[in-house]
């Protein structure tokens, strides 16, 4: 099944990004297709390139980058990103910045859309 995901919260302050990641991992393991992971609101900072959490903590941006490398489309909302000072050169590899139109397409193409937020 084609499943889309929207995240509305940034890393660490909220569990949203963690739950979304675990959900996406489990969906892929079951053979589902992730239509896209759309980072909206403060979620744009989930893919901040210069993130450097303590070594014994999970690296949220790296997690999303690794999923991106596996072919999952990780999309950062351009309008939300601009508000928060996120630019293409500040996001991790295998993720991209695009418009809200991408979220609309995810909603049209996916059979399910799950939101994670606060």
């Amino acid at each position: 099944m084609k499943i889309g995901v929207m995240i509305q919260e940034g890393p660490y302050n909220h569990e949203a990004s963690d739950t979304a990641y675990k959900f996406v991992e489990a969906a892929l393991a079951k053979g589902h297709t992730i239509q896209g992971v759309f980072m909206y609101d403060d979620a744009v900072t989930n893919v901040a390139k210069h993130m450097e959490p303590p070594q014994d903590d999970r690296h949220i941006a790296r997690r999303w980058s690794e999923l991106g490398a596996k072919g999952v489309d990780i999309v950062v909302c351009v309008a939300a990103a601009k508000r928060r000072g996120m630019k293409p050169e500040l996001i991790v590899d295998n993720t991209r910045i695009s418009g809200l139109g991408q979220l609309s397409e995810i909603c049209t193409e996916a059979e399910r859309v799950v939101t994670f937020g606060d």
């Binding site: 489990a26 969906a27 393991a29 079951k30 589902h32 859309v113 799950v114 939101t115 937020g117």
Partner: peptide
């Protein structure tokens, strides 16, 4: 339930998140 069951529930039903 675990995350895999969570995925199954989403497969069976359209989700609505109450944040």
């Amino acid at each position: 339930i675990d995350y895999a069951d969570f995925v199954d529930l989403v497969e069976q039903h359209k989700p609505m998140t109450w944040l």
